[in-house]
């Protein structure tokens, strides 16, 4: 069994570019050098992982160009072999990897673009749940309204609901680089931060919204487990962004991202 294990580790070392010599001695040449035979498996693995990264990060690919993206992807895949066969998730730390490349210092938004693509994919594959329509949201909320002061109300979001922020206008960069984009609008990198939410509805339609910062913070607090009252208290701390709980609730209802309104008694 030890020999079998050594053989299998040999294939991993081969892909990682670490040690090929021992494995080559185990392979019959039979008219074609052992190293050339092993190279086929190595190429298959690396090629398929590059394709997986191309599929998972299409806008990053477009921004970097095929040749450069592929060379980065080749290095990344040798250093970061997948931990599961679910290649739809491959590239878990690819955004951070991009941020560490000196050659990309002039493209500081690239990490966030890759994160946005990753989040878009996570959203697509997230569990599907029944979502409260805005009418149902208000029906439930108004039922509890009278007791708001004595009870804590918590919001359960649909699993596909994702929040992310960036110091760069990544929403515009992303939109302009979609295949079906017809808008040639330019973007200004100094245009400031953006606060985004991504979610899908019950018909699997994916949506990305740019949020005002106060609403982003409110939703983030709710997602982190704050009650409505606690989340609204935080809102008052955001400088120059006056925001009432009612205004926040109106926007929350409009987004249609709530699956459940939970009431937990203070007692």
């Amino acid at each position: 069994m030890e020999r079998l294990l050594k053989m299998q580790y040999g294939f991993k070392l081969n892909v990682e570019n670490k040690n090929r010599e021992w494995l080559e001695t185990q392979v019959m040449a039979n008219g074609i050098a052992a190293k050339d035979r092993l190279k086929i498996y190595e190429n298959n693995i690396c090629h398929s992982l590059i394709i997986a990264l191309q599929d998972n990060f299409p806008v990053t690919l477009r921004l970097l160009g095929q040749e450069y993206f592929d060379s980065i992807a080749m290095d990344y895949s040798r250093e970061n072999l997948p931990r599961t066969p679910l290649l739809m998730n491959y590239g878990e730390n690819f955004p951070e990897y991009l941020s560490q490349l000196r050659a990309l210092d002039d493209y500081p938004y690239m990490e966030d673009i890759a994160k946005l693509e990753q989040n878009w994919r996570k959203c697509y594959h997230a569990a599907d749940r029944a979502i409260l329509s805005k009418e149902a949201f208000w029906d439930e909320m108004l039922m509890e309204d009278a007791e708001l002061s004595s009870r804590n109300i918590y919001i359960e979001f649909t699993p596909s609901f994702i929040l992310m922020s960036s110091s760069y206008p990544i929403d515009k960069i992303w939109q302009i680089n979609q295949d079906d984009n017809i808008n040639s609008e330019d973007y200004n990198l100094t245009g400031g931060a953006c606060y985004l939410t991504i979610f899908k509805d019950e018909e699997f339609k994916m949506t990305m919204f740019k949020l005002p910062k106060n609403l982003y913070v409110f939703l983030q607090n709710l997602a982190n487990g704050d009650s409505l009252v606690q989340a609204s208290e935080q809102l008052e701390k955001i400088e120059g962004e006056g925001f009432t709980l009612t205004e926040a609730l109106v926007q929350l209802a409009e987004l249609e991202i709530t699956t459940e309104i939970k009431i937990i008694s203070k007692d």
Binding site: Q8, F11, K12, V15, N44, I45, S48, L81, P82, P85
Partner: peptide, 14 residues
């Protein structure tokens, strides 16, 4: 085989 030491080598290895 395709899994070695927790890594998934995305091919059908002999």
């Amino acid at each position: 085989f395709s899994v070695v030491d927790g890594s998934y080598l995305n091919d059908l290895l002999p």
